[in-house]
Design a protein around this nucleic acid. Sequence first.
DNA 1: ATATCATTTTAGATATATTCTGAGTATTTG
DNA 2: CAAATACTCAGAATATATCTAAAATGATAT
Lengths: 141, 141
Amino acid sequence: MDAAEIKKALEAGGLRCTPQRYAVMAFLMAQNSHPTAAEIFAAVNRVDPRSSRATTYNNLRDLVQAGLVREVAAEGRAARFDATGMRHHHFICDRCGGVEDVEWYAVPKPASRALGKRVLRECELIFRGLCAKCAPRPASR
Amino acid sequence: MDAAEIKKALEAGGLRCTPQRYAVMAFLMAQNSHPTAAEIFAAVNRVDPRSSRATTYNNLRDLVQAGLVREVAAEGRAARFDATGMRHHHFICDRCGGVEDVEWYAVPKPASRALGKRVLRECELIFRGLCAKCAPRPASR
DNA sequence: ATATCATTTTAGATATATTCTGAGTATTTG
DNA sequence: CAAATACTCAGAATATATCTAAAATGATAT
Ligand SMILES: [Mn+2]
Ligand SMILES: [Mn+2]
Ligand SMILES: [Zn+2]
Ligand SMILES: [Zn+2]
């Protein structure tokens, strides 16, 4: 996705394509990791134009609302973000808290009886355990 | 599960059965909601013996580590907890953030090729959308 | 182009959630 | 019993996220 496409995607979500907002979106799309808001703030400020912390949070909120960015909440730690490109699941490491993508596959939806009057928007599948880096030495810290 | 069983479960997890720790566990088991640490702290302090905030957090951490309690992280908001009784999935409301149980059903595990060297401990399925209370009036606050 | 209006940005203050500190208390072990 | 270990506690400290109010920006209408 190039600059013009990002601009179009933002505007399709009812958002202006401001330099600060564009920088957040472009950074997330160039990443295959799952940066925190603080990391995104630092990254977009390594290049002009400068963006404030509040703006970074505001834009992340707006991008999540527009469906262009996904937020991954991890226990205790700061939330992590990724651009919603290809569908995928997530693996979260019990030890280091790292978030990694896992190839997507369909998940059976719950019975409508089990949902009752709730309106289902999405099913999120999260795997937990030890990442490749943490797995080999389960006893060490 | 009665008092003796809670004691046994705690000790099986390598934890002493202290009055403060017992109170947290007993409260969570009596709840079918998903209280925050602050709510648990308030609840266990409505009865003797008193427990400090730090101890409440410490005990929640220990109980999660021992597998007796599950922590549910929600974006932005405080973490919520439940006693790991019967297996179940969770529904998290987009609007009010409420966490509700959904009847359990088996989820297909990922291909071992997709997992690589990671060690899988559990698959957690989280549904998102609007809860029964928030669903009927999607435009209101 | 000028006025008007809505959106966005900003620095810093504020709020909320969680962890840390270091001293004291309780329990277990030898 | 003494010593080691586990636990608790109040408050301080840290981390994370949101709010505020003023200024800047960009869109739309005249
Ligand atoms: Mn991802
Ligand atoms: Mn539950
Ligand atoms: Zn890891
Ligand atoms: Zn709701």
